[in-house]
Simulated scan of single mutants.
Amino acid sequence: MERFKAVVFDMDGLMIDTERLYFEVERVIARDFGKEVKDETLWKMMGRKPIEAITVFAEDLGLDISPEELLGIRDNLFVKKLVNEVEAMPGLSDILNSLKGKLKMGIATGSPSKFLKIVLDKLNIGGYFDIFVTSDEVQKGKPDPEVYNIAAMRLQVLPSECIVLEDSSNGALAAVKAGCYTIAVPSVYTDKQDFSFVNYIARDLRDAAQKIGELINRE
């Protein structure tokens, strides 16, 4: 068994409670166009590059507006919510402190760097991480493995030496395709998604921290 050398965190819905903010914004936008958006559409959008996600939204709702224009509307609404309402998920500080100095750490997010910066500044957690990969830097969003391959390369480890934490099926699939040991931490927004292919399903971040402790102590 290869020794684990790094842990890579997804951001939205895993480290911070942004899925609620995204869902609220996207439901508002749908209503503004006289539509209702189904949960299944919102699930399909999760983890993807922003332009890919909003294209799914536009197609599923049959909106006659360019994805670029629609993304601008969503981003303006979302930034206001993010600045005012961003909160860490329960157990985030616990898991960061428990891993600090034991493994290299990174964030691989489907969000753009401007959102990542807001989160790091608001929660004051940037110092825990060695590398960051955002949607601005990838050609293909999750479930494509590109983001995790880049993260492993920047951390100077093999994907098989990485433990990845993800809250969505799309994100978890990206990590598995990259060859990472994948821990799903479903939220109330993703607990009905398929995680049958991951290595471990954690109840929350504290459970995930305990599992990672077992993995690195067993080596």
Results as ranks from 00 to 15, higher is better:
173 L>F: 03
218 R>F: 06
173 L>Y: 04
182 T>C: 13
143 P>D: 11
179 G>I: 11
143 P>Y: 07
62 G>A: 05
102 K>T: 12
102 K>D: 08
58 A>S: 01
178 A>I: 06
202 A>W: 03
123 L>N: 11
91 G>M: 06
155 L>P: 11
192 K>T: 10
110 G>F: 01
86 V>T: 15
92 L>E: 09
76 N>H: 05
13 G>S: 09
115 F>N: 15
102 K>S: 14
215 L>V: 02
125 I>W: 06
171 G>T: 04
45 M>D: 02
19 E>R: 10
31 R>E: 12
153 M>P: 00
98 S>T: 14
93 S>L: 14
109 T>L: 12
101 G>V: 14
102 K>H: 13
128 Y>C: 14
86 V>P: 04
189 Y>C: 02
125 I>P: 09
153 M>R: 15
148 Y>L: 09
44 K>E: 14
3 R>V: 13
199 N>H: 15
19 E>S: 13
120 L>N: 04
188 V>A: 03
68 E>I: 06
48 R>L: 08
10 D>C: 12
81 K>T: 02
25 V>R: 00
89 M>Q: 15
182 T>S: 07
140 K>Q: 02
130 D>E: 09
138 V>P: 08
30 A>F: 03
124 N>H: 11
154 R>T: 11
88 A>S: 08
20 R>H: 10
98 S>Q: 13
201 I>V: 15
78 F>M: 14
46 M>T: 12
109 T>H: 04
7 V>D: 05
15 M>P: 01
26 E>Y: 13
136 D>E: 13
146 E>F: 05
185 V>H: 00
62 G>V: 05
72 G>P: 09
204 D>F: 06
170 N>A: 07
214 E>R: 11
185 V>A: 02
84 N>Q: 14
153 M>K: 15
154 R>L: 13
63 L>Q: 01
156 Q>W: 09
129 F>K: 03
165 L>E: 10
72 G>S: 09
166 E>M: 04
